[in-house]
Simulated assay, not measured.
Amino acid sequence: MLNKSIWMVGIAWLGSFSCSSGPKIAPDTAAMVNHSEIKSSEVEKVFQNRIKQASQTPAAEEAATLKLNILSQLIMDEILMERASKDNLTASDTEVNAKFTDFKKNYTEEKFQQFLKDQGMTVDDIKKELLKNATIEKLYNKEITSKISVAEAEITNYFSKNRANYNLPERWHVMHVLVTPWPDPQINNTKNDDAKTDEAAREKVQNLLHRILNGEDFAAVARDYSEDSSTAPMGGDLRLLSAEQLDALDPKSPFAKAVLSLKAGETFGNVIVTKYGYHIVKLVEKEAAGQHDLTDPKVQSEIRQAIFARKEALLKAAFLEMARNEATVRNLLAEKILAEPGSSTSTSASK
């Protein structure tokens, strides 16, 4: 009986030891991902950076929802980073430093320091973000992009089902840089650069126009500085637009007239003002009206890209679900909100 008692005590001691070696949950823990902690302070830092660009302070419930969304993204990022690490895909210091140099190249030291101050970031914060983005991109390339192929039969089948969509009016392939005269909470350019006043916007757009007219690559400038969140990542590409679509952008502005006055490859020499803000516009090419056949390389390329994008979106959604399923996640912020519905939202908003 004594031996059995000693054995039971030993088992209990081992159990307590194994628990003590597991993930530690502290008052500042927002979530646990496998054995890694995401702190509430990390969520709060992103949250504060988001709301300071908003036109008004969010209500308590809105603030709590935003924090949950931020935390959800941080959880997914941590899952992907751990997966990439297991596959030896973590971006190297050399890769990160090269991306940092590219990120910083168009800033003077004074403006770079001001950028850090405005964003509440340090150089290490930026490099950490660049490391994460580069690593996740490598993971996506391995698990998704490299596995996608588009067969000629798929292109032919797509065209046969959508042939009428390629009987097109005259169109203009347009690129633009947009600068808005107000704070934008959804800035998506590589510099995270945002003009917050009309004076700052006019100064910024004139500076960018001068740089473009003096030979800088239009797409690179758009990616770095355009405040159009949907087109900045694509180098400001508005793609092919009909005369009707051009006019619909802002019928009261000279936007369409400016585009129609350009020759292929030209950038309009003045800033164009619309209801959206200040624009710099370039015409890439002009396309004649008529039925476009599958023999047209542009049609083939467009269809290939469309099919590729659909496959990529599907595989990415499935991959993220699989990665999430294989991880052990505990969202303590969500638990707190559900446990204290009357007070958690006000707490999350007041931090």
Rank of each mutant, 00 (worst) to 15 (best):
Q48D: 14
A248Y: 04
N207D: 05
H292Q: 14
S350H: 10
T94H: 00
K4N: 14
T135H: 05
Q186T: 12
P183H: 02
K67G: 06
T347I: 11
D247P: 00
L262K: 01
L74F: 07
W182Y: 15
E143S: 07
T267K: 02
E42T: 14
E37H: 10
V150S: 04
A84M: 07
S146G: 12
V43A: 06
E143V: 11
I187Q: 02
D87P: 00
K67T: 06
T122Y: 01
N270G: 03
P23H: 11
A232S: 06
A59Q: 15
E266L: 04
T345I: 10
H210W: 03
A54G: 11
D224A: 05
R330P: 00
A222G: 02
A30R: 08
A195H: 03
S20E: 05
Q48T: 10
E137A: 14
D184I: 09
E143Y: 12
E326R: 03
K336E: 06
N141V: 06
N69V: 05
Q186G: 09
Q245W: 07
E109F: 07
E109N: 14
W7D: 14
M32Q: 15
Q186Y: 09
S21E: 08
K117Q: 10
K204F: 01
D237N: 10
N106L: 06
W172M: 13
K311D: 09
A98E: 13
V271N: 01
W13R: 12
S230N: 13
N325H: 02
A31Y: 04
T65K: 15
A64T: 12
G290L: 09
C19M: 14
E109S: 11
N162G: 05
A317C: 00
L208D: 02
